[in-house]
């Protein structure tokens, strides 16, 4: 079975990974997590602002991990990664969006006096 692709190092997926990529993915995630933890612990912003800042941190971390660690992009030799990305985005929007909707409605109906959370 001497196929051209029997050497795993020659695979495009393997070619994409580099120490630098993994390190930057790891460092970005850790730094963002530390920053978010620090801001929450010291109450650096009012509650709503804090919520927004943490959400932004989480979004950046997600994108960095998707790109640097999972190598999910739109490159042609990586077609199945693109397919999974296309599948993942609607699911992500659906779950987060519907959760946000149901809980904002819940708060509206059950805790009308509570401000600052939504």
């Amino acid at each position: 079975m001497s196929h051209g692709h029997s050497d795993p190092v020659q695979h495009p997926e393997v070619q994409m990974s580099s120490v630098r990529g993994y390190l930057s993915g790891f460092l970005i995630s850790v730094l963002l997590m530390l920053a978010a933890t620090y801001m929450s612990a010291t109450h650096a912003f009012p509650p709503f602002g804090l919520l927004m800042v943490i959400t932004v941190c989480a979004a950046i971390a997600t994108i960095a991990q998707t790109y640097f660690l999972l190598h999910i992009d739109t490159a042609e030799h990586n077609i199945w990664n693109t397919v999974s990305l296309v599948l993942f985005i609607p699911l992500f929007v659906l779950t987060i969006g519907l959760t946000w909707w149901m809980f904002s409605q819940l708060y509206l109906h059950t805790m009308p006096a509570m401000t600052g959370m939504h």
């Binding site: 659906l94 519907l98 149901m102 809980f103 409605q105 819940l106 509206l108 109906h109």
Partner: peptide, 18 residues
């Protein structure tokens, strides 16, 4: 299957729209 999970807790009280 990804859009129906609230039916396990309709009685949560999320309201008529949800």
């Amino acid at each position: 299957s990804w859009m129906v999970w609230l039916h396990h807790f309709f009685t949560m009280g999320a309201g008529p729209q949800v």
